[in-house]
Design a protein around this nucleic acid. Structure first.
Length: 585
RNA sequence: CGGGGCGUAGCGUAGUGGCCAGCGCGCCUGCUUUGGGAGCAGGAGAUCGGGAGUUCAAAUCUCCCCGCCCCGACCA
């Protein structure tokens, strides 16, 4: 260790917020090079390599073959797939000396698709799964949390190629199983949640989330085992209500100044109270004006209708409108639609309810089923409608998940009330289908000599993010506590005191153990006080700390378990056995 | 991109117009010290984020720019 390239820091870096970030920097595993870009130091690199090695084993076991693409790529394939535009500012773009467009790859679907197209043309060559462990680049608007969201990061991306949907399902299952084994071997807690496929396109998609309060993804789960990303949660539609001739007709009521839901409810309970109960926010139909912005910049104003007690969740809505982005309508957008009276918008002027040809699209929350009765805007200032029945008095252009999800909402599969938690996205698997194969022309001949478009899956693990997630969930007040599988070394050997015999003995142990296949970090620094060595050992976080020092005179060596803090004085002859036991070997 | 905080040595910081910019950690030399971040003595290390301006005088005031952190928007 006297020669190890390492400098531990006594104080937390001022620009770090998360425990994992602070500790990885203080313990000398990584250094920040630029915003969201980190350099790997010897210890950090060892951990990264170990995670990669485990991942490779699981990929090979699942039948995937490793390749390696450049990170620097020509623009053409991405222009063909449309992602050169779709990715927008997230893409690092550059030009060569001849003004040719290049990019630093954010992910490699196109390249894998083209590689297979280049070499294969028969159904006999399938199924095939390829993978790589590569550095990816994304010019994130706001990199944060050290390794958790960087602009450069290490990712394992795998791609499966099959002739049909059944094959894809099999390849997908194989990767899914490999992922569960991988995360289990790391000892990293994970939840598999349903996800929306987003910019990737495709159908089935699941995320592996490491539950953590510092995670950026919100997900829900139910006691019955349902789990989904908040963006992907579906709302179980209440049963339709059949109305009859006794169902009262709607009525326009004056509601001066009731521009907000809260005001409206208060006024309604006073001016036209219900017989059976008080009016609630959930009795109102709130209509919110939004704009969908296409990657081309084209703007479409549309309105969503949802129960008045719910807020619009732009994230959830946006996930369903990909690749368009959704934002609240601005003043300029509203000016183009004078029929939309802010605070008093009702279905009457929206979508199919309007006679106008350019009526804005009207999408509603799944709770607005046929037969439900609402208080909603009358499309003129200071007036609302009471008793407007969906299906009878108005209709819409379709349902959309646009409302916030709340703890306690029912799971769509009836498995109980949902709880909301946060997680770090450590893996994401997709059934892409034919999206990339189609635009890039990847097809093979089937047994009848007919060209069939290949169907693909895409499977990612954020390797550097996994490292951060492990650090985030494996530490204590004095430092990191690595699981043995990924620790830079298994044993941190400390020699204390100034007795030469101690150092000789420790060196001897280090050599023997290394020979026996145990990785040892040996703190042989002679002019460093014991306190510093102990503190460093705890900060660095090897699973076992061995101390050769004052006990040696009696033939005793101290062995500590980093995680539990348990200490034992062991006779020298039994130390190796004890260490191996602690390491679980 | 909006809101907030900030930028002084490798790290953490003090310094709101006035002498050679101070302290702790770390680093170097010497002596002492060695089971919980040692002591003494000496030393190296700073274009005070950059530029322009105001002033007899700027880390400190003004303007512009750059960068960092947090929240939001955004985000396989």
């Amino acid at each position: 260790m006297s020669r190890l390239f390492l400098r531990t820091l006594r104080e937390d870096p001022s620009d770090a917020e998360l425990t994992s970030h602070k500790l990885l920097i203080r313990a000398g595993y990584i250094r920040r090079t630029a915003p969201g870009i980190y350099s790997w130091l010897p210890l950090g690199l060892r951990v990264l390599r170990k995670i990669e090695a485990i991942l490779r084993q699981e990929m090979e076991a699942a039948g995937a073959q490793e390749v390696h693409f450049p990170a620097l790529l020509p623009a053409e394939p991405y222009q063909e797939s449309g992602r050169w535009d779709e990715y927008g500012p997230l893409l690092f773009r550059l030009q060569d000396r001849k003004k040719g467009d290049y990019l630093l790859a954010p992910t490699h679907e196109e390249m894998f698709t083209l590689l297979v197209k280049d070499l294969y043309s028969s159904y006999k060559d399938l199924p095939l799964t390829l993978y790589q462990i590569q550095t990816k680049y994304r010019d994130e608007a706001r990199p944060r949390a050290g390794l958790l969201r960087g602009r450069e990061f290490v990712m394992k991306d795998a791609y499966s190629f099959d002739i049909d949907a059944a094959g894809l399902a099999e390849s997908y299952e194989a990767q899914r199983a490999a992922y569960t084994r991988f995360f289990e071997r790391l000892g990293l807690e994970y939840v598999i949640v349903s996800a929306v496929s987003g910019a990737m396109g495709g159908s089935r998609s699941e995320e592996f989330l490491n539950p953590s309060p510092v995670g950026e993804d919100e997900f829900v789960r139910s006691p019955g085992g349902y789990a989904a990303n908040v963006e992907a949660v579906t709302t179980p539609a209440p049963p339709e209500i059949i109305w009859d001739d006794d169902t009262p007709l709607w009525d326009i009521v004056p509601t001066p100044g009731a521009g907000t839901i809260a005001d409206l409810i208060e006024l309604a309970n006073e001016a036209f109270p219900r017989a059976d109960r008080r009016w609630e926010a959930a009795d109102t139909l709130k209509n919110v004006v939004l704009v969908a912005v296409q990657p081309s910049g084209q703007r479409e104003v549309f309105v969503v209708g949802l129960p008045g007690d719910r807020e619009v969740d732009l994230k959830r809505l946006g996930a369903q409108m990909e690749p368009a982005e959704v934002e609240p309508a601005g003043a300029a957008d509203l000016e183009k639609h004078p029929e939309l009276v802010p605070g008093y918008i009702g279905p009457g002027v929206l979508g199919p309810n309007s006679a106008a040809e350019d009526a804005v699209r009207y999408l509603v929350d799944p709770r607005v089923v046929s037969g439900t009765s609402w208080i909603t805007g009358a499309n003129e200032p200071d007036k609302h409608v009471v008793g407007l029945v969906a299906g009878r008095d108005f209709t819409h252009d379709g349902f959309i998940e646009c409302a916030e999800v709340r703890a306690g909402d029912p799971a769509p599969d009836g498995s109980g009330p949902l709880e909301i938690a946060r997680g770090i996205e450590i893996g994401h698997i997709f059934q892409l289908g034919t999206r990339y194969a189609e635009v890039l022309g990847l097809s093979v001949l089937d047994e009848n000599g007919k060209a069939r478009t290949v169907t693909m899956g895409s499977y990612g693990v954020g390797v550097s993010r996994v490292l951060a997630a492990i650090a985030e969930s494996n530490n204590d007040d004095s430092g990191l506590v690595w699981p043995v599988q990924v620790a830079p070394a298994q044993v941190h050997l400390v020699a204390t005191g100034k007795d030469e015999a101690v150092y000789t003995k420790a060196e001897e142990l280090a050599a023997t153990w290394t020979e026996a296949g145990i990785e040892v970090i040996f703190d042989d620094r002679k002019k460093v006080s014991p306190g510093v060595k102990f503190a460093d050992a705890e900060l660095l976080g090897m699973p076992v700390i061995v101390i050769v020092g004052r006990g040696l005179a009696k033939g005793l060596i101290e062995v500590r378990d980093r995680r539990s803090g348990q200490r034992a004085e062991i006779p020298e002859s039994q130390v190796l056995a004890h260490v191996e036991e602690l390491l679980g070997q």
